[in-house]
Design a protein around this nucleic acid. Structure first.
Lengths: 358, 358
DNA sequence: CTGAAAGCGCTAACAG
DNA sequence: CTGTTAGCGCTTTCAG
């Protein structure tokens, strides 16, 4: 890229954009300095609100920057100050509904801290996660918020080396690297199973995602199986899917399960969306909910409020997870001597119309 | 919600690391250079696959980098090379379903170009958009993809100054700054209205979002009104909402409209989600769809496939919009002499079960 | 094929 | 309150 160096003609300091500046070149602090007749350092101070600057110089600088349309170069700033106000957020998906809500919580908290979230998406692939993490870390962010506790060995090594706060979110069934905020999905599955059994259901089937990388859904399933076992029960059937419209898949899987097992009396879905599909299927085919079958999902999606019958579900505390994670990063960023913090959140079981609360 | 904070007692995470290096400092090219006995410059070449390097040195460097766990510093790299492989993507919301799909299209194309998307969310606020844009530009990205054609004056100025390709997406009813990819929402509204009228409906009501910043929904409404006017018709009623569960709001608004106007025969929703809510309401209250009322939404969401009756809708070409926009940025990035490009996409009207296709 | 020198644009750390 | 001096960690450029 060809750059033109502008020799400063110390005589004229007009506020209007000096002619002769290569229009391809992007403005620098120096341009603002020359236009305002204030040293680069002071310009820098004004633009960052750092240190005391007299109101008059301040005004001049601001005016010059505004007129020129100067936008600071954070690449240079970051290199010089050795600090970058970025927080890497690494999540499996954006289409899952859950993660945008987590993002909302994160943004909300970060907004007033000078920190800025940057999202990376892994599509539930550990290798992709590794790549995304590497890319993120190469920007030297102030912290990382990453979904889940399961990561490849190189990913762990990178995070350990990075020397920044790491917050693993959504899950606490496992050993966090540093800090963590989440719920126990294992326990969530158990708790739902217990409530289902306590409500008198006995023939329970599971419907969920196929995704190998969705450890949390798997933990919920394990928790449920464990609880059923203790109650002397077993899952009657299970059905998995991947890809496609979740609502539609919910219908299809429900049809399949019900066709195979006409006597099933409860369907546990690994997420609310397929649960909603199942509910719609039941309504359409005249299967009484909850008279004939009870239904439960997971996540406590707002969407459920619009459904004709309320599924049982469990709130995964999504926004709160985001908030707490962001608070940890922001706190550690402000006081580097703070230690790791593990926060367990407790989801509330929403019985909907199918579960009898004890 | 009761939360417990567990202070982790293991503040002593041991990290094996080469002795003598300050553990707080992050690794530099120089560390790799020393560990491998190769000059920094050559190390840099190896790590970037630039220029010819003998296989043997190459091996040594790679090995050293791997063992140390070196992660390049893109801040420094970007400053030195005056190029940053980032593409800023500025969208109104992540919870809208539409934008994650656009992102998918963008990521897909960018994946093989060495460029990386960075998302910023404006919440449909022009001021917020301005801020987000400023932040983005301060990272000196290789391009900007931004939703909509309406921006504040300062935002326009910043983009004009930036000297990078700008692609405005989703909408082409207006004057693009540089490049643009999208559909005509005005025409989409008109087209839907024409189809509705052609199907014999006469008493049409509109249900949509309140959001002042949602220019595209407004354009669709205007297009619809225009088409109705030409057919000698007028909207019978309209209802707006903001916030809350879209599905639920769809139900409520539908109830309100139907209560006020028992003879309405068609409901046009500004998006599929509230349309789905309306559909569920009709089903629950025994209102025959499409016998009594016809329904149409907008977006062509996958979700609709799972509904008991198919609304009419219109595909906004979301993924394609993302792909094309990314292609333009990638192309301009590779060949800087390429000019602006405006791509109009044509949404297909999906008649669903309520519209008679001509 | 490899290396040395000279910055990229900004800010930390000191003087005044 | 304001200015000067050194870099930050990398890549460009130009010599070997």
């Amino acid at each position: 890229m060809a750059l033109t160096v502008l020799k400063s003609s110390r005589g004229d300091r007009t506020v209007t954009k000096p002619p002769g500046i290569d229009p391809k070149r992007t403005l620098t602090l120096r341009d603002v300095s020359e236009a305002s007749g204030v040293s680069e350092m002071t310009v820098s101070r004004v633009l960052r609100n750092r240190g005391d600057v007299s109101p008059s110089t301040r005004e001049r600088v601001l005016e010059a920057a505004r007129v020129l349309g100067y936008v600071p170069n954070k690449i240079a700033g970051g290199l010089a100050s050795q600090r970058v106000n970025l927080v890497g957020v690494i999540i499996p998906s954006l289409s899952n509904m859950v993660f945008p809500e987590v993002m909302t919580g994160i943004s909300e908290v970060l907004e007033n801290t000078g920190l800025q979230p940057v999202v990376g998406v892994t599509n539930y692939s550990p290798e992709r996660e590794e790549t995304v993490l590497y890319e993120m870390l190469s920007w030297r962010p102030s912290g990382i918020i990453i979904a889940g506790l399961e990561h490849t060995q190189p990913a762990r090594a990178m995070m350990a080396q990075a020397g920044i706060p790491i917050v693993e979110i959504m899950d606490i069934d496992g050993q966090p690297m540093d800090s963590a905020v989440g719920i126990s999905h294992y326990r969530a599955g158990r708790q739902m199973a217990e409530a289902i059994v306590a409500s008198g259901y006995r023939k329970i089937a599971f419907l969920g995602t196929q995704m190998a990388g969705d450890f949390r859904a798997r933990k919920r399933l394990q928790g449920m199986e464990e609880a059923l076992r203790r109650a002397g029960l077993d899952l009657v059937d299970r059905e998995f899917y991947s890809g496609g419209s979740a609502l539609l898949k919910g219908r299809e899987m429900t049809a399949a399960i019900l066709a195979r097992n006409p006597d099933v009396d409860f369907l546990y879905y690994s997420n609310d969306m397929i649960g909603a599909g199942g509910l719609l299927y039941c309504r359409d085919t005249g299967i009484d909910v909850p008279g004939k079958v009870g239904l439960a999902g997971f996540n406590g999606l707002e969407l459920l409020d619009g459904l004709p019958v309320r599924l049982a579900t469990m709130d995964a505390c999504r926004m709160e997870v985001g908030r707490r994670a962001a608070q940890i990063i922001a706190g550690r960023n402000a006081s580097p001597d703070l230690g790791p913090e593990v926060v367990e959140l407790f989801p509330t079981l929403q019985p909907g119309d199918t579960i009898r609360q004890r």
